[in-house]
Design a protein around this nucleic acid. Structure first.
Lengths: 235, 235
DNA sequence: TAGTGGTCTAGACCACGGT
DNA sequence: CCGTGGTCTAGACCACTAG
């Protein structure tokens, strides 16, 4: 049931409930979920609120609404085999590579009145005696969620391991926008790119936890030697 | 003024009007546009309709709504978040845009002893009288799977519609590799990119049907105004 | 305090799909 | 025909911003 006095708006509460049911398999892939009218009644709310919740799910690609028929679970989750989001270190370990991180900058910044811990790292792999950096990452982590994060040495610690084990925050979903961006000479040198090259692939977005709270704003510039592969299901 | 008997819903009409004013510079970058209440009055409609229109502009990144202050023009280069594979036409239709295709090349080629129908198209949207091309696509379709495909005019037909309806082939999965690639002046001109720009985002890969048979080799070059968005689940 | 956008209610009519 | 989602109306109260 929805709680009028909850911190979150009703439509967000409903959205979370429906989302959980889908992810838990209560509503299965391709199946019809209750109609807007049914949701209205069972959650004792109005259609506007129900539609706000459903429009969130629709924009996330989790359900599809069809006029005259109903709302169906889509769950076409774009899978990707790609670096970084959700486990650079783990990914490399599974490939029998040794991950290395170099902290380029580390400080507290304020954006729109919110304090963030800003972490800029070059990340790559070590082979024999040589290190090859593959990405330059900038992470913004809310101080409110991760107090004392500046105590860690992220040249040695994995950020995601700390988030999970020491703060109990589990990265669950990432919304990422890709673009081609000009890069500075400094970044080119770090990634061992030729100075004559002008632009690199950049991924920018947010990472969310299981409660759909934004836990990290992230921006990653990829070396041209990285292959960015994704698999998309379009059923 | 909005027309109740128009083909398009009121909020789409209002959305188009506001978008035009922004693109024409009537509302300038960073400026405040009329409040929801003012729009209600001047267009003789209700707040729900106004908010539907504004939420379209917001999701496109053309305006930003700030509680207590107002709605401001963002205009960070209008970005289209497009997932091209599996439904360029459908995607645009869902946004009430008109998709346009221009065939740049069309012939039969042989690769490794296999015959393919090669189709090169520029694809984009039409607004009023102007066409804006967003991608340049190259498709290689096996002649064995699609005999007689050269009869179609893909300046008018949707390739995926023909594949599904006329050949019963349903695109199900795509494996795509992203990279930053130098582009020719010809492509720059088509996508209305500055000549000084050197590289664009390119997606290259294969599309498979429900039986996991490769039905299309594809290569897409994206205009820099396209925002390539993905959602990744990392659970 | 006045104005803004954020949320919510309680209705209404419509176009569409399936019976 | 009925049920579905799509659109629209006409209000309401709230939290936030600014003068």
């Amino acid at each position: 049931m929805l709680d009028k006095h909850d911190f979150a708006p009703l439509y967000i509460q409903l959205y979370r409930i429906l989302r959980k049911r889908i992810l838990d398999g209560e509503y299965k892939q391709g199946e019809k979920i209750p109609s807007e009218t049914e949701l209205m009644k069972s959650f004792q709310t109005t259609r506007g609120t129900v539609r706000n919740a459903l429009s969130l799910l629709t924009s996330e690609g989790m359900v599809e609404q069809v006029r005259g028929k109903g709302t169906f679970v889509k769950l076409q989750q774009l899978k990707y085999s790609i670096w970084n989001f959700g486990g650079f270190t783990d990914y490399l370990k599974s490939r029998n590579e040794v991950a290395v991180s170099m902290v380029l900058d580390q400080k507290t910044v304020s954006v729109d009145g919110v304090d963030y811990f800003k972490l800029v790292r070059a990340r790559g792999i070590k082979k024999e005696r040589t290190v090859r950096y593959l990405t330059v990452d900038t992470s913004l982590l809310p101080v409110s969620l991760f107090p004392g994060l500046d105590r860690y040495d992220f040249g040695k610690e994995s950020l995601y391991r700390v988030m999970k084990q020491d703060y109990g925050v589990i990265p669950t979903r990432a919304e990422i926008s890709l673009s081609v961006e000009p890069v500075s000479d400094r970044v080119k040198d770090i990634l061992q790119e030729d100075r004559s090259l002008t632009a690199l692939l950049k991924a920018e977005g947010s990472v969310f936890d299981q409660n759909n709270a934004e836990i990290e704003k992230v921006s990653v510039t990829y070396s041209s030697s990285v292959e960015f592969k994704i698999t998309a299901n379009m059923a």
